[in-house]
Amino acid sequence: MTITPTEPPHPTPLQDAEPPRRGKPWNEDDFLELMRACRGGSTLAEIARRVGRSESSIGPQLRRLLPTEERHLPVELALPRLRQLDRDGDYDWLSALAQRSKSPWEIEREALAERDARGIGTFNDEELLTVALALASCSLPLQTTVTQRCAQELDRRRLTDELHRRAARLTQAAAERLFGRDRYRDDYQPYWQVEEHPSIVDAQGWLARGGQSPQYGGE
């Protein structure tokens, strides 16, 4: 039996050939070509072929050309939105590309700074100490967030010791109004020098609780 050798099949081009620029960093020329394709009305797949990238990589880069507040848009909306912004052909996509999206940490820091700019953080030291003395001496339950923020601000400015001294002087002044002659006694000692005086203990306890008022009544 004679076996006739067969020719190997001719190679056929791969249907899913790897894009020529896949995995390479994006540069300004890539974005320029992307914008040209966008202006020409190309589809997402056509844009990918034109810039030599995979279709899945085009969407995130399209979003980078949008203003930072619009970069959350899905891919199917990013392309028409980019065309809308560039409808007159003068969209400054380079400036948009240069804008960096804020990290979650930066967003949180800005929110805290904005909050402080409207509240206790705007007080000067004297105002803060006045408010803290009023909160520390209040016998009624207080809103925890207010007292905690006040205590945190006192600690940040290192004013806790000054609050202790002022709390003691406040009690001393009240006692002297009631017992005005006590200052002439041989054993007289200013209350702010008494380490365990209730006014000092109260102020220290208030700060130790992080500005939280004592609980009243049952649990």
Rank of each mutant, 00 (worst) to 15 (best):
V131H: 10
E219W: 13
S101E: 14
W192L: 12
T6F: 07
C38T: 15
K24C: 09
D187I: 08
S57A: 12
V201P: 03
H197W: 01
N124S: 03
L133S: 07
L82N: 04
E18Y: 02
A37T: 00
Y216I: 07
L79W: 03
R53P: 02
P190F: 05
P141F: 10
L142E: 14
R36A: 14
M1C: 14
G23W: 10
E106T: 13
I200D: 03
C38L: 11
I107F: 00
F31P: 00
P80G: 09
V75C: 01
W105I: 05
E55Y: 00
L178E: 11
R169Y: 05
L97V: 06
G217C: 07
E33M: 11
E176M: 11
R166I: 06
T144V: 13
G59N: 04
I107V: 13
P19I: 01
Y191A: 09
A167Y: 04
L32W: 08
F179Y: 15
T68C: 07
L154A: 07
L140P: 02
P104R: 09
D30M: 01
E110R: 11
R36L: 12
S199L: 04
N27E: 07
G40Q: 10
T145H: 15
R169I: 03
P198D: 02
A113I: 03
L163R: 02
D16T: 07
T130S: 14
L85I: 05
R21I: 00
D202C: 08
G210L: 11
E126I: 06
R83S: 06
L112E: 09
L85Q: 04
R50D: 05
A117K: 14
H72D: 07
S139Q: 11
C150E: 00
Q148G: 13
E33A: 13
E55H: 01
A134K: 14
R209V: 07
M35F: 02
L97A: 09
G217F: 12
R183V: 14
L112Q: 13
A167S: 15
P8N: 04
G89I: 05
P20Y: 09
Q99G: 05
L112M: 10
P198M: 03
R115W: 11
R36S: 06
L79N: 03
T144A: 14
E106D: 10
H164M: 15
L85H: 12
S54P: 03
R118F: 02
L163V: 11
D155N: 10
S103T: 15
Q148S: 12
G218A: 11
Y184W: 07
A168Y: 01
